[in-house]
Simulated scan of single mutants.
Amino acid sequence: MNGKIVAGTIVIAALLAGLALYYTQEYAYFRAIEPASAEAQIRLQPIAGAVAEPMLVASDFEGVDANSSPLRFRACFVTPMSLAMLTESYVIYERPTPLNAPSWFHCFDAGRIGTDLEAGKAVPFLSQENIAPGVDRVVAVYPDGRAYAWQQLNESADK
């Protein structure tokens, strides 16, 4: 009988710890980004310039971020800027790797975005290099104006 109580206590403690870990990864540190805030301003790195320029965001901006990690930024929006103009004016990002968003942030599907980037259905641009040490912000733009932004590790983080 005594062993059942000990085993039950261990199982319950493990379940509670698992639930706490899930909550902290999915909900605890994330916060919504207000569309009118400075944090919601998406920039792109011009080919012929050193300073990133603001990107036009037409509508439907949704974003999340967290202070716990620079890799937690995600955004979904629509831009009126044409893909032809963007590819002529801004730096294309060489190795985009969209990172998963929390499950409740429905507009950002990293798997679909990654597949579309590999298939050439979307074009990745450098938004800001080293927005945090070793972290770049990347924006993927579709021909219809849909755009997705995230932050990922760059080569300097590998060193």
Rank of each mutant, 00 (worst) to 15 (best):
A132Y: 01
Y27V: 05
M1K: 10
M85H: 12
R74S: 05
D158P: 00
E88N: 15
D65E: 10
N100P: 10
P54I: 11
R137G: 06
S156A: 06
Y22D: 02
A110L: 07
Q151S: 15
I47V: 07
L83W: 08
I42P: 04
A17P: 04
R95L: 10
L117V: 05
I42V: 11
Y23E: 00
A28N: 04
V91T: 02
P35K: 00
A149D: 06
E53D: 11
T115K: 12
L117H: 06
A110V: 06
A32S: 04
S59R: 14
S69T: 01
A50T: 15
E34L: 10
E39A: 10
G145R: 02
R31D: 01
A122E: 07
K4C: 08
P133C: 00
I12Q: 03
Y23D: 01
Y27L: 07
V57M: 11
A149M: 08
K4A: 09
A32C: 01
C107Y: 13
Y148M: 04
A40D: 13
D116T: 07
I33D: 06
T9K: 07
A66L: 04
R74D: 08
P98F: 02
A101D: 06
L86Y: 02
F61R: 02
L126F: 08
W104T: 00
A50Y: 13
A36S: 15
A66K: 03
S89I: 02
G63S: 04
Q151Y: 04
T87S: 06
A75G: 06
A52T: 07
D65A: 14
L15Y: 05
A101L: 05
R72Q: 07
I33L: 01
G111S: 11
V64L: 15
Y142S: 01
N154G: 13
F108M: 02
P70A: 12
A40N: 11
L44H: 12
N130T: 04
G3Y: 12
Y93Q: 01
Q25S: 12
M85D: 15
R72L: 15
Q25Y: 08
I10L: 15
N130V: 00
D136A: 09
A66G: 09
S37Q: 06
D60N: 09
R72P: 02
L83A: 07
G18N: 15
S82W: 00
T115E: 15
P96K: 04
L16G: 14
K159H: 10
I113S: 06
G49A: 12
P54C: 08
P35Y: 07
M81T: 14
Y29N: 01
I131D: 12
A32D: 05
Y27M: 09
G49Q: 07
M81V: 12
L44N: 13
G18F: 04
K4T: 05
E118G: 03
A110G: 09
R74L: 03
A101P: 09
P35I: 05
A20S: 14
S59L: 12
E34R: 14
D136Q: 10
A38V: 08
D158K: 15
A36Q: 15
F105N: 03
L19R: 00
S156P: 02
W150R: 05
A147C: 02
